[in-house]
């Protein structure tokens, strides 16, 4: 069905601005993850330092976006789809800010690992990173285009990322059992893997909010049966 525009063109513009800002913030976090992972795989700590320096920009944009949403809540008193859109946007920006922090965590571990001999070729970690970036992209595309199918994809990928995280954990455990000198490096790699797994959780959080925005039904914490 064709989406009608608001009678107030200013209001329409404000809502569009929120969408644009979220797309931009999403792109910044994707770039941060990619750069942190490049720092690890290419053993270039300058990339990692760039991620850490640019996190301030993500934090600043998160704060600005939240402020814009609160302003709309106060001044426009949105209802129905607009209310669900704004509450979803507030949640999404929070998730993206946390994803930015996790990219910083990965960057910090990458700097540590780059100073030590390589423990093993990185195969699964880049795969995880690529999957979580796709999850972020899909969850935001789902938000912008109100697309439920994409949220389903995010859910499916989250399971794959969880499995990869467990697989990496098991593999590194064997390294550590065989040779205690690998423990420090193995723990750093595990922490990177864990951060990627948490990013996947945040992307799923975004997708769940998008489902709420589209359907009006909350799918978060379903085990608690919150009405």
């Amino acid at each position: 069905m064709e989406e009608r525009k608001h009678t107030s063109s200013h209001y329409e513009k404000e809502l569009q601005e929120i969408k644009n800002d979220l797309i931009y913030l999403g792109a910044l976090t994707e770039k941060a993850i990619q750069l942190a992972m490049d720092s690890l795989t290419q053993r270039n700590s300058d990339f990692a330092r760039k991620v850490m320096a640019e996190d301030d920009e993500i934090d600043k944009r998160d704060a600005q976006l939240e402020e814009k949403c609160i302003r709309i809540l106060a001044l426009r008193q949105p209802t129905a789809i607009d209310l669900r859109f704004i509450t979803t946007a507030i949640k999404i920006t929070g998730h993206l800010e946390r994803i930015g922090d996790m990219a910083v965590n990965i960057a910090e571990k990458a700097i540590e690992l780059n100073q030590l001999p390589r423990l093993k070729p990185y195969v699964d970690l880049p795969r995880m990173a690529s999957l979580v970036n796709e999850m972020i992209r899909n969850s935001l595309d789902a938000f912008i285009n109100e697309n439920l199918e994409l949220t389903q994809k995010v859910h499916e990928h989250e399971q794959v990322v969880d499995d990869l995280n467990e697989q990496i954990f098991r593999e590194l455990l064997t390294f550590m059992l065989d040779d205690s000198k690998t423990i420090q490096r193995a723990i750093f790699i595990m922490q990177i893997s864990k951060n990627l797994e948490r990013i996947a959780d945040h992307s799923k959080g975004i997708a769940d909010m998008v489902i709420y925005m589209i359907t009006g039904k909350s799918v978060r914490h379903q085990e608690l049966s919150i009405s």
Binding site: K5, H6, T7, Y11, A80, I81, R84, T215, G216
Partner: peptide
């Protein structure tokens, strides 16, 4: 929060 009819949603959201 989630009206069933699009026309209702358009009205209460100012569209």
């Amino acid at each position: 929060t989630k009206p069933d009819v699009k026309q209702t949603e358009d009205y209460i959201t100012g569209r």
